Deep mutational scan, measured.
Amino acid sequence: EKTLKIVADSEEEAEALAKELAEKYNLEVTIERNPEEEGKYVITIKIKP
């Protein structure tokens, strides 16, 4: 299993990107607040072998 993390500037941007990735590529995608940067969100994508 591989994990890729993407940082987005807004929750709306994160949700839109996560939804597109999940639907288009059938990936497991989660969104959470970035504890290191206020106002940023981390999109985590898990790629199963």
Rank of each mutant, 00 (worst) to 15 (best):
Y41W: 14
P35M: 12
T44K: 03
I45S: 02
E12N: 06
Y41R: 01
T44E: 05
E23C: 09
G39W: 07
E20H: 14
Y41S: 01
E37R: 08
I31C: 04
G39K: 03
I45P: 01
P49E: 08
T44Q: 05
A16C: 09
N26T: 05
E28Y: 06
Y25R: 02
T30C: 07
S10E: 01
E23R: 12
K46Q: 09
E12M: 10
L4S: 05
E28H: 10
T30L: 07
L17F: 05
K48R: 11
I45R: 00
R33L: 11
V29E: 00
K5H: 15
I43C: 03
V29L: 04
P35H: 09
V7L: 11
L17T: 02
V42H: 02
I31Q: 01
K46L: 13
L27R: 10
E37H: 12
K40R: 07
E37D: 08
E15L: 12
E23V: 11
Y25V: 03
R33I: 10
E37I: 14
I6P: 01
E37Y: 13
I47D: 03
D9P: 03
A14T: 01
E28G: 04
V7F: 15
A14W: 01
L4I: 15
E38N: 11
T3S: 04
S10G: 03
V7H: 15
V42E: 03
E28V: 08
I6L: 09
L17H: 01
A18K: 09
K48N: 13
N26A: 09
V7P: 14
E12P: 05
L27W: 13
E13V: 08
E23L: 11
V29T: 07
V29C: 04
S10D: 03
E15Q: 12
E38R: 09
P49T: 11
K2F: 14
A22V: 15
P35L: 12
T44R: 02
I45V: 12
L17E: 01
N26H: 09
T3R: 02
R33T: 10
A16W: 13
A14H: 00
E36S: 11
A16V: 06
E37L: 12
I47R: 04
P49W: 13
R33M: 10
V7T: 10
Y41Q: 00
E1N: 06
A16Y: 11
E11C: 07
Y25T: 06
T30G: 02
E23F: 09
K5C: 15
A18G: 06
K46S: 09
L27A: 15
L17K: 05
A16L: 08
E36H: 09
V29I: 11
D9G: 05
K24F: 12
Y41N: 01
A18E: 02
A18T: 04
D9I: 03
K48A: 12
I45C: 08
G39E: 05
L17W: 03
T44Y: 13
T44V: 09
K19E: 03
E28A: 08
K2L: 15
I31P: 00
